[in-house]
Nucleic acid binder design. Structure first.
Lengths: 233, 233
DNA sequence: CAGTGGTCTAGACCACGGT
DNA sequence: CCGTGGTCTAGACCACTGG
């Protein structure tokens, strides 16, 4: 074997991928064990291991102790979307970012919210409406609820200047979140803030954030008409 | 130092993460170098390396040779969406999957498509309309164009039984793709196939797939009203 | 119980990128 | 130039899991 000793895990990864693509190892079959590949490629087992581990992370192969490494039948393609701060998104487009806080109310959590975020009945929350502009055109409308108990400091926060997203990210980074994307028909409020006719089809991102099992915030971010979220893989 | 020798990279990762969260190492600061951490934790440098590398992959820290490892200021959270085959999605909901091929036409690529996929003018493509049902209710409408030159075998493919997505995935796995999500107002066709009023707000996924720089397929997958794509991170 | 991947080690050399 | 992370090695032990 040992054509020309591949000694970087990049090379090994590429070679293994090539064999899978070229059906040398068709979907469902098992690859040789790590030690065998190490011998074939003339490298240490750790190097093969690193290559295969990354292929497993990418969902190309599946590894199990004792059984070995096998090529996944229908490769599940997973795309990665980076959810940036809106300001970033806008500035990346070389547009001028402007932010406005349209509403800030402290009140007891409405029942639907309390049940959604698992709050005690009547627990106090901060309800915000914000609009993010790109070159003075509305880009995103943000409707956010913050659980005050989870971040008491928010009462003192100056959210006139900094968006709540950025403020929260700096205050309580590294939270767990649940995200969903969907399409909605603009309600009167969204239509007004975004400057579109009512019932316009809009892209919306919903995110619920938790810190150690305690809900921090629920936000609906509704984008201007025609917005598309993109990525490649 | 060396409180209690942490010797698994999991433990080290957790400990480093804890220190970042607890602001022992605030955003923007540099962590000790790998060798120092290895000494502190009483383990090999490779172990520290593995832990820090994974934190870098997660976008928690940023590493650069010579400079060192620093805590990212505003952690960019990236969510991973698995784009499964529709059949999977439906079956995962314990619903009955049914598929119908509504149209199959072979024709020269229209100009907009040719320019979009970088095809020669008039190159022949296969144009398909498919509907995927969950428990006999329309779930997704698929409008797909396939570049015949890229996958000649598609001419013989029986797309009555297997959806083109599954067929393509088996035939040409491991392609590059560009994806975008957005909201659209249903046109007459989409409205009819999905059984909703015209202009209903619908969630749509567009994907362009390439194999070695050659366009393979462009597809618009439009979901039933109310559909949301979910994930957590 | 035994086979395969999972992980750790101690040491080495290399490559990038500030100074 | 030279410090820091990037990677490789040879060898070892461990942990899960299939038979």
């Amino acid at each position: 074997m040992q054509s020309s000793p591949l000694s970087s895990y990049h090379e090994i990864k590429a070679e293994v991928l090539r064999r899978i693509k070229d059906r040398v190892w068709p979907a469902g079959t098992y690859l040789p064990k790590e030690t065998e590949l190490a011998t074939e490629f003339g490298c240490a087992r750790a190097t093969v291991n690193r290559a295969l581990r990354e292929l497993a992370d990418q969902g190309i192969v599946e590894r199990k102790r004792k059984s070995g490494t096998k090529v996944i039948a229908l490769p599940v393609r997973s795309a990665r979307f980076t959810i940036e701060i809106v300001r970033q998104t806008i500035e990346d487009q070389n547009a001028e970012y402007r932010y406005a806080l349209a509403m800030r109310v402290e009140e007891p959590a409405p029942d639907w919210l309390a049940s959604r975020l698992n709050l005690r009945r009547g627990q106090r929350v901060l309800h915000l409406h914000c609009v993010h502009y790109a070159d003075n055109r509305p880009f995103q409308f943000e409707d956010r609820w913050i659980n005050i108990a989870a971040v008491p400091a928010v009462r003192e926060a100056d959210l006139q200047t900094i968006g709540p997203n950025e403020w929260l990210l700096a205050e309580v980074p590294f939270t767990e979140a649940e995200i969903s994307f969907g399409a909605i028909a603009a309600n009167a409020q969204q239509a007004e803030f975004l400057g579109v006719p009512s019932a316009t089809a809009l892209f919306q991102l919903e995110r619920t954030t938790y810190l150690r099992d305690q809900a921090v915030t629920l936000v609906h971010m509704t984008y201007h008409a025609g917005y598309r979220m993109m990525t490649r893989y």
